[in-house]
Write a protein that binds this DNA or RNA. Sequence first.
DNA 1: CTAAATATTGAGAGCGCTCTCAAGGTAGAG
DNA 2: CTCTACCTTGAGAGCGCTCTCAATATTTAG
Lengths: 350, 350
Amino acid sequence: MKRYTLEEIGKLAGVSRATVSRVINHYPHIRPEIRERVEAVIAQTGFQPNAVARSLVSSRTNIVGLIIPSTVEEVFTDPYYAYVINGISQSCNTNGLILSLFLIHSLEEERNVIQAVVGTGLVDGLIITASRRNREMLATLLASQLPIVFIGQPDNDTNTHYVDVDNVSGGYLATEHLISLGYENIGIIVSYMNKSGEARLDGYKRALNDHGLPFSEDLVAYGDYSLESGYHAMKQLIKRKPQAVFATNDTMAFGAIRALKEAGLRVPEDIAIIGFDDLPSAQRSENPALSTIHQPIQQTGLDAVELLLKVVNGEVQKAQHQSFRQRWLFAKAAAHLERLAREAKNTATS
Amino acid sequence: MKRYTLEEIGKLAGVSRATVSRVINHYPHIRPEIRERVEAVIAQTGFQPNAVARSLVSSRTNIVGLIIPSTVEEVFTDPYYAYVINGISQSCNTNGLILSLFLIHSLEEERNVIQAVVGTGLVDGLIITASRRNREMLATLLASQLPIVFIGQPDNDTNTHYVDVDNVSGGYLATEHLISLGYENIGIIVSYMNKSGEARLDGYKRALNDHGLPFSEDLVAYGDYSLESGYHAMKQLIKRKPQAVFATNDTMAFGAIRALKEAGLRVPEDIAIIGFDDLPSAQRSENPALSTIHQPIQQTGLDAVELLLKVVNGEVQKAQHQSFRQRWLFAKAAAHLERLAREAKNTATS
DNA sequence: CTAAATATTGAGAGCGCTCTCAAGGTAGAG
DNA sequence: CTCTACCTTGAGAGCGCTCTCAATATTTAG
């Protein structure tokens, strides 16, 4: 398929380059017959304007970059990212944007990639998952003036745009759910990877407090959102004999469940578990069915693109913009599970 | 951070635009003192040449597109894609390429996206997963003359470049493994989604044949590589009372196992299962531990980029290039599993 | 019917870079 | 010391497009 230029199309249609450009960009004030003639040539040749040339003059590439500064392992272990990517991709397709994906495999790579992405003007803006605390990267990025939207609250308090779920409410809901089932000695597995962990922990504390339950550091174990970390955290928590445990993401919840099984404990008869994310694997999991807090991950990706687009277009006031989403749902915790849990409270004693 | 141009850097260093360009592109024949002077200015200003302008003149964007023409569901259900993406991303980072990801969410979107990607000259080349049979898309792509490398043999016999694992050997190995364990009545769950299914089925048939076992259509069930399809295929196969089943990917194997559990059958005591892919979830799975054929998925992604790069650089002869990989390993099928299987053969009768 | 307003089009500059070409320098050969 | 060969640099064209500006064509008001 031959590549045409505006000039050539113009020649074929008997008009100038400029007129063809006008037709393509839907300018008003073009004589209908000329428009038709040009459109006919375009249709016949299959002409599409060169994106690079367009970008050069308009200084807009219509490319948005997605940076996921997690280790490789996480991106696989945690289906969370598949959802984020998908949401973003979908929104890009809808908005005529192109998605460039930057997975970071090492710290050195991080530096290089960020440098290149920021410096060469290839992307109009950046979406970054707040997977990990990283102040160095943040500094470079903010200095670049490039429009950026974070997914999840980033680890700094400057005025950055971000899209996030309401982690405090989420933590609160999860904990309250367990309390409502009659548990009093409730453990929590928190991630220290980013702010979301703190926030969910905060919700946990508040729920305990609101229901007159004491908070104890002993019942807090830490993980990094990975299956393994959930497993180890649970092993540690078992010693404290909690009646129930709130794992701050589903992946750690699965790790925790494995630890419990290994210890010969039944879930939820001996120890109840609630997760966070509502991943499909959680929805499908049986033996036991996992209760979990729904997080509209995919929607978050969509919103991030929309927000970024606004930032790029300068439609957002200078003040930092924080878009919260709080559509919280309990995952379909099977009814029988709740029944079991209720029975469990009668037998389990700390 | 101010954006500089070559011209400005030149002025600051007291040389012409052209000289700065030469320094950046490491041309020989530059007086050392001038080179140093220019490099100093570059370092001090943090100048990086504008990628778009570069692309315009060199007609090379250094962007490679990855098209995954699967339904959304698949991309999540099957961690396979996470690995492919990661391999490609890694290789891109190493080679100074930028990865653009195109997830296709609908057929209409497919048409639009492909059209845009192919027509606007934004990518230097394309990597496409042969997830689904799709001749329409293939036709457009081949007509475009754009360098393309498929991952997995595409559904046509024209001269397209592709990187693939040796599916026939894989199917052969899996089946032979089951045969070596003493099973004779071996079922198979095949995907009809792309050629890989046929090839794995072919390997299965050959293995049966080489070991003097009959092939029966009755023992073949079909799926689409999804968990659900594995589940349903197994339900169907159960009626034929196979002693063992070869699921042509791990995800379907998990579905099959679920079906067996539901039917009150033990794995592998009552029916043995072998998978294909060697996903980490398979490696980690217990209850039962899943035997599986290792597929170097990530490596495939790396190879695809390398090959594409060669094609783009015109280093590949016109003849189609087919790069096979056959590093086959049995996944660590726990020894006890094999023992169990061996015992099972004594009890299980068709 | 004429002037003013508006519609329609092309010429040309320029986005930031690469690359060719030619000019001026410098060094080695004769 | 002169000639040739190579080194070193800048000027300028041009990648394909957008957009301003000015010129021409058409319409409307008076």
